[in-house]
Design a protein around this nucleic acid. Structure first.
Lengths: 226, 226
DNA sequence: GTTATGCCCATAACAGTGTTATGACAGCGC
DNA sequence: GCGCTGTCATAACACTGTTATGGGCATAAC
């Protein structure tokens, strides 16, 4: 009953492309390598996708879906600012786990002639709505100044995207910054203050989110052992 | 007396590479095209630089120098927060004028196998010091909370880099945001508030910087006419 | 049962890429 | 003149994305 038909060639190509991009980076994502991975010839790519760039498009759409799923899976507490900090940390960890994929998703890398189109940007924007709802909760709770939550969300997005990409480029390596320096937490706190929170409340919420993610990691390790 | 000897081949290759990258994007930067532009064969690239990636390295080093020069040329007033906003706008306009170059400089694009090395990152960090000195002035003036100016500068840098790259990817196109919406100004204001400024003072300083850059553009147009 | 249609894809080719081995040529020290 | 060194033109190698061609092969039509 399970998987009565083997996965179609198109799906196997997508999976192989995602794996190659993730494990070996953009340079490994060639038509011949992709064909070899699934035991076919390069023509398989062109009958199913038309071009290598369209394969990349499929891969990043899946990437957007997975990012949105991870953000939606986070628990909701009565401290929306702490929840926001946790969500930002989750995004950053996704980008750290899939640096090449995220670079393509947000326009960093031009790969195999692939260019983001407006519909791709729209899909990318869906994940933003999850963040926006949380920002709106911060406003409703009186922690952030009233205003357009989408604009504040975009502000936060710029900040997280910049941090992600500069970190990936190496600008936050130990050669430039003390190892273990909590730059993410400092930025999240200052962002909350800029959005209207008090310094004291923002500091408490960010610390709370750090405590929670530490507990979450501990639970995951325990679950891994059990 | 002026240019007694014609520019050496190495310099002409660098100039041609910068022009190709700027005018036609990374796809135009090939060894054969580069050789054709300077009227030589591809071997010229390899005798002078060893690889195409090293040509790219030379181009982005020049890019860092020019960015630093533009930032250093800005006037200093008695409102350091307004000066900071002006400097951010100048950085953004540099990135808008040279999007491909800036993308390589800050690790966005992997071009011809070029990868940022630690010494490149160090050169990139030099431009940051100009920003840091301004942040330190904001602290000394009591506008920003006392603290490590470099960390606050990094925070601002993340924000500007994210804004730049997401704008380039198309995420701030009119399809997603009202045309003419002053998202740069809103972000600069919130950043200043997050760093310790009051909402009122930050708003005034950002508006002052907008007024000044408007006046500067007017002067430039008048100078162009005169 | 035969024929036709359309899909999937293997083979081989084309034009392009970065890079390198080879060798020619010019300038210079002696 | 001789040798050396730096510069680069020629041609090749292994690679890339893409496409033209044609071979199966399942299904539909008659």
């Amino acid at each position: 009953m399970s998987t009565p038909t083997p996965p179609a060639t198109a799906q196997r190509l997508l999976d192989a492309a995602a794996r190659l991009l993730s494990e070996e980076g953009p340079a490994a994502l060639t038509t011949r390598r992709l064909a070899r991975e699934v035991g076919a010839s390069t023509m398989a790519v062109y009958t199913h996708f038309g071009s290598l760039a369209e394969v990349v498009r499929g891969v990043i759409h899946e990437g957007f879906r997975r990012l949105a799923d991870r953000l939606r899976a986070l628990p909701e507490t009565d401290d929306p600012v702490a929840d926001l900090a946790t969500m930002c940390r989750e995004s950053l960890e996704y980008a750290r786990a899939e640096p090449h994929l995220v670079a393509v998703m947000f326009g960093g890398t031009t790969l195999a002639g692939f260019e983001l189109r407006e519909d791709d940007l729209r899909i990318g924007g869906y994940a933003l709505r999850i963040l926006r709802d949380l920002v709106a909760r911060c406003m409703a709770a009186g922690r952030f100044r009233a205003g357009d939550p989408m604009m504040v969300t975009r502000h936060l997005w710029c900040q997280m995207h910049g941090l992600t990409q500069l970190e990936r480029a190496g600008y936050f390596a130990p050669a430039f910054i003390p190892e273990g320096y909590p730059y993410l937490e400092g930025q999240l706190r200052d962002f909350a203050v800029g959005a209207g929170d008090t310094l004291e409340a923002a500091t408490r919420s960010v610390e709370e989110s750090v405590r929670r993610s530490g507990a979450r990691l501990k639970r995951q390790r325990n679950a891994g052992r059990g």
